[in-house]
Simulated scan of single mutants.
Amino acid sequence: MAISFTKSFTIPLMLTICSTILRFGRSYDYPAAFNFGDSNSDTGELVAAQGFSLSLPYGQSYFNTPSSGRFSNGRLIVDFIMDAMDMPFLNAYLDSIGAPNFRKGCNYAAAGSTVLPATATSVSPFSFGVQVNQFLHFKARVLELREGKGGKKLDKYLPAEDYFQKGLYMFDIGQNDLAGAFYSKTLDQILASIPTILAEFESGVQRLYDQGARNFWIHNTGPLGCLAQNVAKFGTDPSKLDEFGCVSSHNQAAKLFNLQLHALCKKLQGQYTDGNITYIDIYSIKSNLIANYSRLGFQQPIMVCCGYGGPPLNYDSRIVCGQTKMLNGTLVTAKGCDDSSEYINWDGIHYTEAANQYVSSQILTGKYSDPPFSDKMPFLLKLKF
């Protein structure tokens, strides 16, 4: 008998069940996790690195403070995944305040990061190659400290040596390479750049593999054209929108990127015969959410929860969520909505906790992965999220 969940009570029940399921699946019983990405999985890296602070209502729905450094009102997909695997939330690599514990892994993802090397105009200097360098430094220092005097005392703070080989390496990056390019390049130029982006990504993965990494979990990129920021900038002409109100060109670029990323993953699956390469189709999950938002309990598929301007988008690029600013001679505030669980989009770029919860629940079914992992966890076949 299938068990179905509604949004109102999925968080505690779904995670309890999935946590049990994942512990049964030995192939997914990892001692640690190392994450690389952008703001979709940043747990405080960019905030710690650049010394700025987010403001409420960021973080209000779960952490009760914006100091978690997450670009959402609450938990991210990576948080739900870690919780489901019965592991603690990942601490940001550069966030040393509060004596973070890195025994179960580390997060190198930083908002605004790209796969390609950062430029002078980049939001984040922590491109994928830099994040890989940070990991290599982290690993070297961990091994050095553990080999020194008093290394045993660090057991509860730092990963064991074999965790680096047995751990899960997660990737969610590439969105900013595509979305940012639309401000200066044509669609054809962007599509032509995808092989270069993926060559850089492959190089980083190869470096991790050479360091002993064997378990790779690679997310593709979501429907960029459905983010309010892109609709506001590039969707003023209705002919450029699809039937869901998303910018067609952005989604076209995301689809081609994902097609080639999938091909790369298949190549790596054949190349790394002693490894596990899992490709996760985030695009399909998010597209299904937007197309079927009402049936899934949401009321707003594209309009922003925390923003300014009112319907249809409630988004103004001149003012960010939580900020008060003088616009056109009037002091205004980009406020949060009354009920964030009704919205998919949080601030024009990022998802709400409720939407992140839905996406993570779909990832955990295993049916959006290649290879599918439900066959390794038979209990999943009896569940319907």
Rank of each mutant, 00 (worst) to 15 (best):
L13T: 13
L22P: 00
L46F: 11
A49T: 14
Q50Y: 11
G51V: 03
S53D: 14
L56I: 09
P66W: 03
P66H: 10
S68A: 15
F71D: 04
I77M: 14
D79S: 07
F80T: 07
N91V: 07
S96D: 13
G98W: 10
N107C: 08
A110I: 03
A111E: 11
G112L: 06
P125L: 02
P125M: 10
G129A: 04
V130T: 07
Q131D: 05
F135D: 10
L136W: 14
A140S: 15
R146H: 10
D155H: 05
L158P: 14
P159V: 07
P159L: 06
A160H: 09
G167A: 15
D177N: 02
L187P: 01
I190F: 09
I190K: 02
I190C: 06
Q206W: 00
G212M: 09
W217K: 07
K233I: 13
K233C: 00
D242F: 09
H250E: 01
K255M: 09
F257M: 03
Q260C: 02
Y283F: 15
P301A: 07
V304Q: 07
R318E: 01
G329H: 10
A334C: 13
S341N: 03
W346R: 04
T352R: 04
G366F: 04
P371H: 03
F373H: 04
M377D: 00
M377C: 14
F379Q: 09
F379D: 02
L381W: 07
K382R: 08
